[in-house]
Structure formats: structure tokens, C-alpha cells
Design a protein around this nucleic acid. Structure first.
Lengths: 210, 210
DNA sequence: GCTTCTGGATTGACTCGTCAGTCAACTGAG
DNA sequence: CTCAGTTGACTGACGAGTCAATCCAGAAGC
């Protein structure tokens, strides 16, 4: 087994290092932590990190790529369920992302804070992958525009940005304790974010009058 | 006059350094640029930067604080116009932010990329100020909830996050060339982002039926 | 069964470039 | 003459990445 080191029964050191990196990056931030912090957290010698990863950045690369692909796959799968309305599909997407944060807050914090929201320095390299998510969401919106359930004067790309931006802002607010985060808050947010973006903030009476 | 140096007629070197920093930070990013880059861009000796600022970070601090306060003031002013509906107020706020980007893209890029979207490392220090903006927006929403024009089941804080998140995502998309950015695009975006968030993505027929 | 060998896993001290910040000297307007 | 404004060489810390040495599990040979 490739995972078995010389000692323990198959502890995959690469995985151990990745998991430690998630904690350290989330706690101290990618730039303000040292590689030795990751090694210490993993209970591993400094040099071993470079046995498994060619650079500090490659650790972050690996974390992001792994998790982001999972999300892309999930969106594709959700979009393929033809019996769902666009609103329901967007609800599923929002639910997936919110659950991701709920279950792995550290990892999601790292991905959002260090990659997605850092497209300037580091994340620039990942823009294409990030854009794929935008495009998938835009695809869902586009179909709804075609069949008339969504307004046609708001382009799908534009709508996708608003939707994704709202969700990412929610996660960011949770990350930095700007919004409350009980289990109930997470569940409620799933419905509300879709209600806010698809249904709008205005009460139905006003919306109908427009 | 405090601004007059030994040479030119009142060139305020501090301002020159700040403006240079905007360009350098926007181009290379705060972390990946050197203080000497800023000094060179400003056409000023390295040491002079430390005559006017106590640290590299203080330059960024100054840029952010200056500009963010302008926005807070603008929102307060917009909110004070009692004849406006909540939707119009939000439209004005969106317009102000979008115009800010339109007229000073570099500065806004720095503020968003290096501060607002970097609340982990650097921006943590500015969270209170950033939160003020959320709260002001939430105030606008709250009033609309009270008078019945906005849905009461979506909390004002939550709605403010969605609204702000959508706008910030728009700017981010422009910054990284994900959305087109002609003068017309900017103008259109002002109306569309409000329409998307207040009126919702769903066409009125669907919205009314809900 | 026992010894030797081999190579991947593991270690951590060290190198080396990078930069933020310092400081002593200089300049010229008033 | 004076001093705020200005200069840029220098220092000191820091941290990413290197590397030679060590360790050990299992293979190969006896």
C-alpha cells in the first residue's frame, strides 16, 4: 500500500500534512504561517513536507483543487435533475455550499479566504476553475430565462454573480462572526438566500405591482 | 503651507506616495510589492516613505480609511433622504459604489482585494468599519420591512449581506475581467443589481403567484 | 531462520535571498 | 544658520526551500 509508512499501520502522511495545513491556514492565514507551523501541527519533520509537496503553495493548490472539483461535480449533478425548477436547483446549490461550510468550516474558510477571495495574488492561477462554477450557475439561470420563469432582462452571467456573491458573502459573514451560526441559522439560510435572490427582497404585493 | 517641500510649488509628497501606492498595490498586490516599488513609482527616495508613514501597512490603512469613510458618509446621506423608497436608496448606494469603481478602479481594487476581501490577515483590523457599512445597509432594509414594502421573513442583516455580497462580487468580476466593463455595462449594472436583489430573478408572473 | 541490502520515508540544521525598517548624512529655502 | 524635508546604503530578522544523514520495512541471498 502506498500509504503505509515505515511506522504506523498505514497512516497516510500526505493526508496528515494536508489536514494539518487546513487547520493552520484557517487559524493563521496562508501568508502569515510558516511551513514549520504546518509540520509541527502535523507532528512531522519540516523536511517531510517537501517530500510530499514541492512548495508551500502546492499544499494550498491541492486543498483547493480537491474541494472545488467536488463542488463543480455537485452542481453538474444538481443541474442534471430535469424535474427540478431553476429555483430548486439554485436552492440545492446553495444548500451544498452551506453544508460544505457547516461540515468543514476550516477547509471552506481556507478556500474562500485564501483562494476565492484572493484572486489577485494566489487565486489568479485558479480563476479558470472558479469561473467554471460561475458558468454552471449561469447555465441554470439561462435555462430559466429561456422557459420564462426568470426575467430575461437580467443576463444569466450577471444573475450568477449576484447569486454566488450573496452566498460567498454569507459564508464570509459566518467566518468572521458577523452573522449568527447555529444549526438552525444554516438551515434557514439555505431557503432565505434563494428566496432573497429569486423571489426578491420586496414583499409579494409590491413585486406583483411592478 | 505644510504641503510645500523644498522644491516644487507645493507638491504634497505624502499624496504623491499614496497615489503611487494605489497604482503599485493594484498592479502587484500589497504583499507581493516592495516598499521600494512604491518609492520608485512615486519618484521619491525609499526613506521618505518612512518619513510620512510608519510602516508599509499604514499606507494601506490610510488608503482604506480615507475612502471607506467617504462611502459610509454617502450611505448615511442617501438614507437620510426621506422621500426615497428603500429600493431607490439601495439603488443610490449601488450607484455610488459602482461609480467609485468606475472613476477610481485602482483604488477600489486595492480596497476590495487587499482589505475587504482579505478580512483574515490584514482587514481583520478594519472589520468594525466594514461592519458599519453592513449595518447602514441593514438599516435601510429594516425600515422597508417595517413599512411592509420588504418581506419580513428575511432579516435585515441577512438581506444586507446578500445585497452587499452581490455588489462586491460584481466589482470583483470587473476587476478580474470576468464581466464586460463598458460605460454602458456600469450604468446598466446599477439598475440590474437592485432589480435582481429587490425584485428578484423570477419573472413577475412567477413572483406574484408565489 | 538469519544477515545483508536497497530505497523510500523521515529528520532538522543550514543556506540564501528577500525586504521592512533604520539612520547618519545631505540639501536648500527662509 | 537652521531644520524640515530628503536621500539611499545598510542591517537584522525572517522564512522558504535544500540536503546530507539516518532509519526501517521488506526483498534477496544464504
Amino acid at each position: 500500500m502506498a500509504a503505509s509508512g515505515r511506522h504506523g499501520a498505514g497512516v497516510d502522511k500526505q493526508r496528515v500534512i494536508l489536514d494539518a495545513a487546513i487547520r493552520v491556514f484557517a487559524r493563521q492565514g496562508f501568508h502569515s504561517c510558516r511551513v514549520s507551523d504546518v509540520a509541527d501541527e502535523a507532528g512531522v519533520a519540516y523536511g517531510l513536507v517537501y517530500h510530499y509537496f514541492s512548495s508551500k503553495e502546492e499544499i494550498l493548490n491541492t486543498l483547493f483543487t480537491e474541494r472545488w472539483q467536488l463542488m463543480l461535480d455537485a452542481i453538474v449533478e444538481i443541474d442534471s435533475r430535469d424535474q427540478l425548477t431553476a429555483r430548486d436547483k439554485l436552492g440545492q446549490v446553495a444548500g451544498f455550499i452551506i453544508d460544505s461550510y457547516r461540515h468543514e468550516p476550516d477547509l471552506m474558510k481556507v478556500i474562500i479566504v485564501e483562494v476565492t477571495r484572493a484572486a489577485n495574488t494566489f487565486g489568479r492561477h485558479h480563476l479558470p476553475k472558479i469561473r467554471e462554477a460561475y458558468n454552471l450557475i449561469a447555465g441554470i439561470v439561462e435555462q430559466a430565462r429561456t422557459d420564462g420563469t426568470f426575467k430575461s432582462d437580467i443576463s444569466a452571467e450577471f444573475a450568477a454573480m449576484c447569486f454566488y456573491g450573496a452566498i460567498e458573502q454569507l459564508l464570509t459573514a459566518w467566518i468572521f462572526d458577523v452573522l449568527p451560526k447555529s444549526d438552525e441559522d444554516y438551515e434557514r439560510a439555505k431557503g432565505l438566500v434563494v428566496e432573497a435572490i429569486c423571489g426578491g427582497l420586496e414583499s409579494d404585493a409590491v413585486g406583483a405591482a411592478a
